[in-house]
């Protein structure tokens, strides 16, 4: 009988195979859950400690206060730290976004196969250099060079930190943007060339607009990276919490500045009592930082989704 039955009826071995499949399924599910649980646990810890901090320091004082001096004056206004983070982010963006996109256009549209094969991995190595090295690079090389242009520049200053963070995130922008540009089908380039476009026109009127969702995503990821950057800015920009002075923007960049991440490091490595208010403020800053980067990631996804719709 078994010889007549077509080979599609489940046998014992098939049953055990189904059981095995089921096991794998559960295993993979558990791994997925683990990462979600970790994330949730981190957020809850942050939230718990931040809330006990905000019980003692009103959240409005924290978010709107313009003086950050936890140990000496007991002032917990986070704005100077946010200002420091924004300065580094904007400063590094001014460097990294244009250079990154132009590099991506060069790699995707102009570079020969051989140059690309050398340049792209080299750029990606830049992304692998430990950030502490970037910090010392800023302190030891960039600041002395800047001193020739701005004699009043401080040993620790926001400008060299911005430059070095900018250099650090260029590979992220160029690599992700280049991926997006390379994914633009050649048929569109041919259409444009066929209409008498120059290489430059093909790049600017077809390739970049078609790759815009990937380019914008790369920007936002790079900015998130700049916002979260810690070691390099702590070393290069120092630890003087200071609100950005709109009347003297360049001067502000020449002075030492403390970012949110640097403030957290400074609290963490000082020997404050873990039950003290100062120590708990660390979690309030952490949660604020998380809220900022989380928002940026959401925006990035929205942007990507929106433009992808238009493209396909």
């Amino acid at each position: 009988m078994s010889s007549e039955t077509p080979d599609i009826v489940t046998s014992d071995t098939d049953a055990s195979r189904t059981a095995r499949e089921q096991t794998y399924r559960v295993l993979f599910l558990l791994c997925g859950l683990l990462s979600i649980l970790t994330t949730v646990a981190i957020i809850l810890t942050l939230l718990g400690d931040a809330l006990t901090f905000w019980n003692e320091v009103p959240i409005t004082d924290f978010l709107l206060g313009t003086n950050w001096s936890p140990q000496i004056e007991g002032e917990y206004g986070v704005l100077p730290l946010v200002s420091g983070t924004l300065m580094i982010t904007v400063g590094s963006a001014l460097i990294a976004l244009p250079i990154g996109v132009l590099t991506a256009i060069y790699l995707s549209e102009y570079a020969s196969e051989r140059i690309r094969a050398i340049l792209k991995p080299t750029l990606e190595i830049l992304a692998g250099v430990p950030t502490v090295v970037y910090g010392f690079f800023a302190l030891v090389y960039i600041t002395p060079i800047l001193e020739n242009i701005f004699p009043t520049i401080g040993t620790f200053n926001a400008l060299s930190a911005s430059i070095v963070v900018g250099i650090m995130i260029i590979p992220m922008v160029s690599s992700l943007s280049e991926d997006a540009m390379s994914a633009v089908p050649d048929s569109l380039r041919n259409a444009s060339y066929g209409l008498g476009a120059t290489k430059f026109e093909v790049s600017t009127t077809v390739v970049v607009p078609s790759a815009v969702s990937g380019i914008v995503s790369s920007f936002i990821l790079a900015l998130s990276r700049a916002i979260g950057e810690t070691m390099a800015v702590t070393i290069a920009a120092g630890s003087t919490a200071r609100l950005f002075d709109g009347s003297d923007p360049i001067g502000s960049f020449l002075l030492s500045t403390e970012t949110m991440t640097a403030a957290m490091i400074n609290i963490g490595k000082s020997d404050v009592d873990p039950t003290s208010l100062t120590y708990k403020s660390l979690f309030a800053i952490g949660l604020t930082l998380f809220a900022i980067t989380f928002t940026m990631n959401v925006i990035s996804n929205l942007v990507a989704a929106r433009y992808r719709e238009e493209y396909e």
């Binding site: 089908p185 048929s187 569109l188 041919n190 259409a191 066929g194 077809v206 238009e310």
Partner: peptide, 12 residues
């Protein structure tokens, strides 16, 4: 001018 095998309008 040239017209290609597969229609290739720009995403515009």
């Amino acid at each position: 001018g040239m017209v290609f095998q597969h229609p290739n309008p720009f995403p515009k």
